[in-house]
Write a protein that binds this DNA or RNA. Sequence first.
DNA 1: AATTTTTGAAACAATTTTGATACAAAGAGG
DNA 2: CCTCTTTGTATCAAAATTGTTTCAAAAATT
Lengths: 221, 221
Amino acid sequence: MLKILIVEDEKPISDLIVMNLTRAGYKCTALYDGESAADMLETNNFDLILLDIMLPKINGYELMEYIRPMNIPVIFITAKASLDDRIKGLTSGAEDYLVKPFEIVELLARINIVLRRYNKTESILTFKDITVDTENHIVKKGDTAVSLTPKEFELLVVFIRNKNITLFRDRLYELVWPELIYSDELSETRTLDLHIQRLRKKLDLKNDLKTIYNAGYRLTE
Amino acid sequence: MLKILIVEDEKPISDLIVMNLTRAGYKCTALYDGESAADMLETNNFDLILLDIMLPKINGYELMEYIRPMNIPVIFITAKASLDDRIKGLTSGAEDYLVKPFEIVELLARINIVLRRYNKTESILTFKDITVDTENHIVKKGDTAVSLTPKEFELLVVFIRNKNITLFRDRLYELVWPELIYSDELSETRTLDLHIQRLRKKLDLKNDLKTIYNAGYRLTE
DNA sequence: AATTTTTGAAACAATTTTGATACAAAGAGG
DNA sequence: CCTCTTTGTATCAAAATTGTTTCAAAAATT
């Protein structure tokens, strides 16, 4: 399980992030000032750090100096959208940059991208009794292997990486059928439904992979 | 009003885009080279950027590096349909990709999709023990999920966003049934009442969602 | 080249949502 | 109490959306 350190002094925001990241399957540690973050980093390893700029005691930039030699990717979080901040944020070695208020989906997407860039994406995903080995393309339900076709596999990975998130139809087409985005009709066909059907059947997901009428689907834990 | 920056050096194409996007209700700024685009971005905020690849002075890819940390979605426009371009366009952080010549409808559709993905509205609403996650289309009463239909959902969101405010019948029709505004009679039917009834029943809002006789309804805290 | 697997289009079925109609109930005003 | 207006409810058919089956084309494998 990938570990993420959240350094953010506004508790409501921090709580919101922790709640969502935990639900998304990350192990979260929340701290509220730069000093305790620095302490924490001396003894613990993290795969990614979400770092607020404005912090008590040691601010985000200063802490960044401390983090840089550790080679841990950092995503800055800030309320300020000023150019100064942007430049400083990037030159100080941050991987990415988010301006408050942001959407949770957005945050999750960024985290995904950054972790992938650092090759820290977990190769084994799980959902309930389902295990997905993304490196070897092996899917297991309990102890028995289930054979999925490439598209089915991709779709499943998308759902597990985004569990508890409603994935809209067009988003799913974007993610799994990027080649179709460029066709005129964003598929008036039943392709997506068909693959959903196959996943449900093969993995017995009737109750977990829910239809959100007029929206899309959600894998609910 | 959403602001879109168009960076495209072929003036006829740029004009065509500007004309259509303006008509569609966007505020457009057109620039014809990468350098002035970079300047513009230093001092102005945009909700979306349409970016040509082949540009004088600074090309699209270079400009992209500059834009990426700003958290502004970009749709690439290009004459080249080569696979190389496509890969480069997407990995450089663009949200989408259009090949010239393209249909305006197509462009508008893409813009819609991308903007919705970047939507920055408050995503979690609450009223008493009711929680509405607008991003994930999840409604909870206490800890139990309540399933609402799309119209019911929309109506609820309107009420919560306007709690303690009396919403007149015609205003509600405007907000939730915009497609009916242009019908002759502003609904002599019981459509609104029916949905109110359903909301009250599903969420136990008898005492909170009050009827204001001869006016409309109010969600009272 | 032959065979198997995967994919998705088309047609059709099932389900869910929707709102129109008809009528009952409630409120306002005399 | 009576009348008129407005709102609440039940019923049901149309519309919209999703699920399923079938099958041929495309892709992968032998």
